[in-house]
Design a protein around this nucleic acid. Structure first.
Length: 255
DNA sequence: AATTCCAGCAACCGCTTTTGT
DNA sequence: TACAAAAGCGGTTGCTGGAAT
């Protein structure tokens, strides 16, 4: 028979998350860390499926998330990475600190696609639209979106000259340059090495000392502030009082 | 002012991959 | 090695708010 659903559909709530549900989830994860997602709803007192909890956490509640539109640099980086990786949003997101695959995917579909089309560039092949039909030497990344014939090595070997051909604006960006000129980084993209930055949240503990590196991740405290600003409940409502003293101290030292 | 249209985004669904036994 | 369970991923859907009529 088929797989069992990730959760029994009966009694499982769907649709937008309420502030109360967010609070429960945050409270639980801050207290216990990310453990078995399937068990989270039960343990956290949520009538949601584990999958939904994971999504909500990773896409919206994680304190290391950046909010707001992608910057020019980030956008350019997404374009370049997409040219190499295709629709592998999670891989792309792994190179943009504080951004999620869902966010990048949405941004791609709503903004970047149109932008590229306007510029006369095919968002799928990253080729100029008028010479799209040419089979071309640039096969290295054009088919990333197709049947993924591309081997991972292709992306690496051609990385340097691709850089100039994938619509990059000359002066765009330190972020992009630093990544695209860094052969080892590109290699890591293809070799599935762990992300450079987001790893600090893999264990979902608030201990994010490692987060404040040169990529300017928002700090834990900044995001607490954001959470408090953007959602209409206070820190008590979040159950942050469950944090231990160290965690609380860390939060207090921000301001 | 009311209605329609559309863009943006959060969330869901189903498939694939990874992990554990 | 085979199988099942869990996690992860990418495509798609549907709701919401703002713009246009």
């Amino acid at each position: 028979m088929g797989r069992q659903p990730c959760c029994d559909k009966l009694g499982v709530k769907k649709g937008p998350w309420t502030a109360e549900e967010d609070r429960k989830l945050i409270n639980f994860i801050l207290t216990n860390g990310q453990c078995c997602w399937r068990a989270v709803p039960k343990l956290a007192g949520l009538r949601r499926c584990g999958k939904s909890c994971r999504l909500r956490w990773t896409n919206y509640l994680r304190p290391d998330l950046k909010r707001g539109l992608l910057s020019e640099d980030e956008e350019q980086l997404v374009i370049d990475l997409h040219a190499r990786l295709g629709n592998r949003w999670s891989k792309i997101a792994a190179r943009l600190p504080g951004r999620t695959d869902n966010e990048i995917k949405n941004h791609w579909n709503t903004h970047i696609k149109k932008k590229l089309l306007k510029m006369g560039i095919d968002p799928v092949t990253h080729q100029p639209l008028n010479k799209e039909s040419k089979p071309e030497e640039r096969s290295s990344h054009a088919e990333t979106s197709g049947d993924n014939n591309t081997t991972e090595n292709d992306g690496i070997t051609n990385s340097s000259e691709e850089n100039s051909s994938t619509t990059p604006t000359e002066n765009s960006s330190t972020l992009l340059d630093s990544i695209c000129n860094d052969e080892s980084l590109l290699t890591s993209l293809w070799l599935d090495e762990p992300p450079l930055v987001d790893a600090s949240w893999n264990d979902a503990t608030p201990a994010t000392e490692t987060c404040n590196n040169e990529t300017s991740l928002p700090s834990w405290e900044d995001n607490i502030a954001w959470l408090l600003d953007c959602q209409d409940f206070g820190i008590q409502d979040f159950g942050f009082d469950c944090l231990d003293d160290n965690e609380l101290n860390r939060s207090k030292t921000v301001a």
